[in-house]
C-alpha cells in the first residue's frame, strides 16, 4: 500500500498519531504537500463523509477521523502556505444568532476542510452583522450557516437580508442547514443551497463555488 493510501486509511480509522506520522513520512518520501493533502487527507475524509451519510458510521467515529485529519493538517498547513498551493474556496461558517449548537456545524466544517476548502469557523451565536463583516473582510465566496432550532432558523433569513443591505449578496453564495431546515425553507428565504448532512454540504459547496 502506498504511503498516501495508508494515510487515507489512518483517517478512516480515526488514528491521529498514525496520521501525523504518515503525513511526515509521505513528505519525506518526496510527495508534495498538495499531493499529500489531496491523495491522503482529502481522499480519506471523502470516504468518512460518504460512510457518515450512509449511516455506516456515526458521530463518535467522525469526530475521531476529524481529529486524525487535524493532526495531519497541522504538519501540512505551513507547507501548503509556503508552497503557494491552491486550496478550494474560502468558506465562512457559523451557527446563527440565538443558537449555541455546534456539533453539526463543526462536522460540516471538518468535512469541508477535509475536502480542501479553507474554513473560517466563526463559532456559535453569530449575528447577521458578524457574518456580513466576515464575508466582507475575508472576501469569501461562500457562507454556510447552521441552525438547530426552528426558533433560530429565522436568523438565516435575517443574515441573507443583511448581506443584501450591505451590497454583498451577489458576491457570496449562501448554503444553509440544520435539523429543522429543508430545501423548501432554503427556497423560501432565497438561500443558494441546502444540505441535509455534512457530506452533502461538501457536494453542495463544490457545486456552488468549487
Amino acid at each position: 500500500m502506498s504511503v498516501l493510501h495508508e494515510l487515507a486509511q489512518a483517517l478512516i480509522e480515526g488514528r491521529s498519531s498514525l496520521a501525523r506520522d504518515l503525513t511526515e513520512k509521505a513528505l519525506a518520501a518526496g510527495h508534495s504537500p498538495k499531493d499529500v493533502l489531496d491523495s491522503g487527507l482529502v481522499a480519506g475524509m471523502s470516504v468518512v463523509g460518504e460512510r457518515f451519510k450512509r449511516n455506516d458510521i456515526f458521530i463518535p467515529e467522525v469526530l475521531l477521523s476529524a481529529r486524525a485529519m487535524r493532526a495531519g493538517m497541522e504538519v501540512l498547513k505551513p507547507l501548503l502556505a509556503s508552497t503557494g498551493a491552491t486550496m478550494l474556496a474560502k468558506v465562512i461558517l457559523g451557527t446563527v444568532q440565538g443558537d449555541l449548537h455546534d456539533i453539526g456545524k463543526d462536522l460540516v466544517g471538518m468535512m469541508l476542510e477535509g475536502a480542501g476548502f479553507q474554513v473560517i469557523n466563526l463559532g456559535v451565536n453569530v449575528s447577521p452583522d458578524s457574518f456580513v463583516q466576515a464575508v466582507s473582510n475575508e472576501n469569501a465566496p461562500l457562507l454556510a450557516m447552521s441552525a438547530l432550532l426552528s426558533t433560530t432558523m429565522r436568523y438565516q433569513r435575517d443574515t441573507l437580508e443583511a448581506l443584501k443591505k450591505a451590497g454583498l449578496r451577489d458576491r457570496v453564495k449562501v448554503l444553509i442547514g440544520g435539523a429543522p431546515v429543508t430545501q423548501e425553507y432554503a427556497d423560501y428565504i432565497g438561500a443558494d443551497g441546502y444540505a441535509p448532512d455534512a457530506a452533502s454540504a461538501v457536494e453542495k459547496a463544490k457545486e456552488l463555488v468549487g
Binding site: 444568532q97 440565538g98 443558537d99 426558533t151 429565522r154
Partner: peptide, 12 residues
C-alpha cells in the same frame, strides 16, 4: 441565557 427573536433558552 441565550436570546432569540421570540424568546430565551438556557444553554450549557
Amino acid at each position: 441565557k441565550v436570546e432569540f427573536k421570540t424568546g430565551t433558552y438556557l444553554e450549557i
